[in-house]
Design a protein around this nucleic acid. Structure first.
Length: 808
RNA sequence: GGGCAAGUGGUGGAAUGGCAUACACGAUUGACUUAAAAUCAAUUGGUCGUAAGGCUGUGAGGGUUCGACUCCCUCCUUGCCCACCA
């Protein structure tokens, strides 16, 4: 017979709600803001949510028991494309559909017993929220951080929308995987590139972030230090700027390669015999497009990146290498990208594998300028591949003999000093395309006037409400453009007839600052309350999936820095500590509809209760690693709770001292594990305690301490037993127990005896025994004596309190 | 190609220089039961041995150390992120 979890869980969920048990209030000097990434309200929670939110809930409840003021809010990232698709499919409105989903989802979250302060709930699709999206957008516009430009944008013909570079995955739409095309459109961008230095620099502050995420962020920002070098054209004053991170190889540059789209190309080929051929080559390459070009080289085969055939053509023009005044040919090739660096490279075939392959294919000269320290190859024709490693400079004028690492710096400085180039830094990070030709999002608060041009909506007109009554046909184009009442507007400047912007904001905008709105979610006249923010921010613990390691976190960091520049906050980074939880798998694969391997949390709650589900998901694996769902494992979790449930049937007057010691050991271990998110081993030590209770019998004191330790993990269950033990206040209002260190010291310790590092025997001695005595004691051990027969003892290693190793 | 993880029983996992496999699942056995379930108790890395006990064992190989799952080197495999990035 299982304990009556259904009844208990309903009872305590109601109690917590009625008593506002988890209402966040600023009272002491000790605060803790625990935040889990808010969900997109699909209507149903999945195991990923369960895991994410259970981890956050356990930590919040633990911090609460430790005496912190805990802020633990929840909301909904409610704008986005699925609502539009659902509206078309189910013949409803995105607004109605989304709100219904939120209601369902909230119900499911409540069934899990999460300790949210529901009074702070927010949904990004409420005008009371997106009003502040618009406000922030206008502030950015005012500072030149939001701007419009015609750009080749990634266009998904299936979703009929533009995509951020970040939303293009392997050349396809991240949502529907349709191949992405390039299309010229006027788009809104946010100038995140203005913050690139701070975004990379401040990564250093993030000492409690996983290294992996820091690396991914740094990689994405892509800072690359090098030199821009000017190669003057043979027959004009103009120069080609090339960017290189390998200034040490400059003397080995034997040709220059331009991207097809490079602005100088047309001029270079003009009138040359190669012109016709070159133009057709450029046409061929541009047809392939940027996305195809880079995705083509991607297929999995090992090392393909640099091995793929590199097509190119000679322009007929020459330029001079400034360091040695050599005249070298200028080529065009598909492997040089206009989007990176200056769209032009100096080719050093002896020391760059891509250049090497290109040079071999097109019969271009090679020159060795870095000597491989262990190779005797002196002639470029002997090279089987480019040498990209370190060595001494050769054929490099006055730099000959220097180690290349040193020469790299010296040459760069020399080039800059002589005006042949300049030391620069290139970045991978592009500005953020935020406009979407979509309906279900925050309207961009901009008005287009024939006379005045682009005019920002006045602050007092915010929010620019998203019209709710829009018909959905599924046909292309911007749905908002069809709503006359929305589009027609008065120009705020000249009061003339004008049109509203019909694009909406990418939903990443919404989630870039929601953590700040939680400190004062109902505030009407300001984006957030500065005093509340001063108390609660930054978020002490942020928890979410690794899939948000780049974009969401980067944007949130960018917004935080922007808000600091506005003078609204005083910190640089929004999330002090970050935990990225692993995925929940079934049969080794991600749970998904298409695989048909989804385990529905609701069904598990129905069968075993939320506490069992919480317990299992924490016990099955540490939070950061992938978790393999196991139906039998959940049985085990259920068994464990039932075992505790029955302890009360056999309570003793007074527990044995030995059990008290085990209890205190468990308190120590669980406390440490809670701090370090090692919930699996915390639970294991609780299991050991329960096993000991079954051996020795517990008293009320032991059971009540056990319940507090368990309460963050299985809160309903613990509340109920706590009450049954006679406590009248909620267990959530009790105190986390402290362990007594004196109880953890054992009078007698078991010392392991090794011979040559191999375990041979052990001996029980008093903890205060001297090393000499211990050594002698070990040597006189019967088993050890046998092993020592005939072999002289060379050395004895003693690790106090633990082990003795006898070397013979 | 670059970066970051990870590789331990039949399974999930524990141990971060000191008794490898805690805790749990599964399996086997016993008790209770007319029976099953539940529960309680016991066994459970491999191998040799009647046993005591021995040998062996943390992806592979080498090294450091009195002692290595743990640190170092080389390699293999898997996962994630980035990538014709100059």
């Amino acid at each position: 017979m299982s304990y009556p979890f259904k009844e208990i869980e309903e009872k305590w969920q109601k109690y917590w709600e009625d008593n506002k048990s988890f209402k966040a209030a600023a009272s002491s000097q000790k605060k803790f803001y625990c935040l889990e990434m808010f969900p997109y309200p699909s209507g149903k929670i999945h195991m990923g949510h369960v895991r994410n939110y259970t981890i956050g809930d356990v930590y919040s409840r633990y911090k609460g028991l430790k005496g912190y003021d805990v802020l633990h809010p929840m909301g909904f990232d409610a704008f986005g494309q699925p609502a539009e698709n659902a509206a078309i499919k189910n013949n409803t409105k995105p607004d109605i559909w989304t709100r219904r989903c939120i209601d369902w989802m909230k119900l499911e979250l409540k069934k899990m017993g999460f300790s949210y302060d529901w009074e702070r709930e927010l949904s990004t699709c409420d005008s009371s929220y997106y009003k502040w999206n618009q406000w922030l957008f206008l502030k950015m516009y005012g500072r030149g951080l939001a701007y419009k430009k015609a750009a080749k944008v990634n266009w998904c013909s299936s979703c009929e929308t533009t995509l951020a570079n970040e939303e293009v995955v392997d050349g396809g739409c991240w949502r529907c995987h349709t191949t992405v095309e390039q299309k010229d459109l006027e788009q809104w961008f946010l100038k995140i590139s203005d913050y690139k230095e701070r975004l990379i620099e401040d990564l250093r502050q993030l000492k409690e972030w996983p290294e992996r995420v820091i690396a991914m962020q740094a990689n994405w920002i892509g800072m690359s230090q090098g030199v821009e070098i000017y190669f003057t054209l043979e027959d004009s004053q103009e120069a080609i700027a090339v960017f290189t991170t390998r200034a040490d190889t400059i003397f080995g540059a034997t040709y220059v390669v331009l991207a097809c789209e490079h602005p100088l190309v047309k001029e270079l080929i003009n009138g040359k015999p190669q012109e016709k051929e070159a133009l057709s080559f450029i046409k061929k390459v541009s047809k392939k497009g940027k996305i195809v070009r880079s995705s083509e080289s991607r297929p999995c085969a090992q090392g393909r990146g640099k091995e793929v055939g590199k097509e190119g053509i000679f322009t007929g023009a020459y330029c001079r290498n400034p360091v040695n005044n050599e005249l070298i040919p200028i080529w065009i090739a598909d492997y040089v990208l206009m989007e990176y660096g200056s769209g032009a490279i100096m080719a050093v075939p002896a020391h760059d594998q891509r250049d090497f392959l290109f040079a071999k294919e097109h019969n271009l000269p090679l020159r060795i300028v870095i000597q491989h320290p262990a190779s005797s190859i002196r002639h470029p024709e002997d090279l089987a591949e480019a040498y990209e490693g370190d060595g001494a400079q050769v054929n490099s004028g006055q730099f000959d003999g220097l180690p290349n690492k040193e020469a790299k710096i010296k040459i760069a400085q020399w080039i800059e000093g002589k005006g042949m180039g300049k030391i620069t830094t290139h970045w991978r990070l592009r500005d953020w395309l935020v406009s979407r030709q979509r309906y279900w999002g925050t309207p961009i608060p901009i008005i287009y006037c024939q006379k005045c041009g682009i005019v920002p909506a006045p602050y007092e007109d915010l929010p620019v409400e998203l019209p709710k009554d829009v018909s959905f046909t599924g046909e292309g184009g911007s749905p908002l453009g069809k709503v006359k009442e929305f589009v027609n507007a008065q120009c705020p400047k000249c009061k003339g007839q004008a049109n509203r912007e019909t694009d909406t904001m990418a939903t990443f905008f919404d989630s870039s600052w929601y953590f700040l709105r939680f400190v004062s979610p109902k505030l009407n006249d300001s984006v957030f309350d500065m005093n509340e923010a001063r108390y609660w921010m930054p978020v002490d613990q942020y928890i979410g999936g690794i899939e948000h390691a780049i974009l969401h976190l980067l944007y949130a960091r960018f917004f935080t820095k922007f808000l600091k520049d506005l003078g609204l906050i005083e910190f640089d980074e929004p999330f002090k500590s970050l935990l990225t939880q692993g995925m929940v798998l079934k049969d080794g694969e991600v749970m998904s509809k298409s695989r048909g391997n989804i385990v529905d949390p609701d069904a598990i709650i129905e069968e075993y209760g939320a506490d069992t589900l919480r317990l299992f998901i924490l016990f099955a694996a540490p939070p950061e690693t992938e978790l393999e769902w196991d139906d039998r494992g959940i049985e085990g979790a259920s068994k464990f709770l039932n075992r505790i449930w029955r302890i009360r049937d056999n309570l003793k007057e007074k527990a044995e001292p030995q059990l008290i010691r085990i209890l205190h050991k468990a308190i120590k271990k669980v406390s440490e594990d809670m701090e370090g998110f090692k919930f699996n081993t915390a639970i294991a030590s609780l299991m050991e305690l329960v096993n000991a209770i079954y051996q020795m019998g517990a008293d009320k004191e032991v059971l009540s301490k056990l319940l507090i330790l368990l309460s963050p993990i299985a809160p309903h269950f613990s509340e109920e037993l706590w009450q049954k033990l006679g406590f009248t206040e909620s267990i959530a209002k009790s105190e986390w127990p402290e362990y007594d260190p004196s109880l953890l010291i054992e009078e007698n310790v078991t010392i392991v005896i090794q011979i040559n590092g191999k375990l041979r025997s052990n001996v029980s001695v008093n903890k205060d025994i001297s090393e000499d005595q211990l050594g002698n004691r070990c040597l006189s051990d019967e088993t050890i004596k046998k092993w020592l027969e005939g072999s002289p003892v060379k050395k004895i290693v003693i690790v106090p309190g633990k082990l003795v190793n006898i070397v013979i």
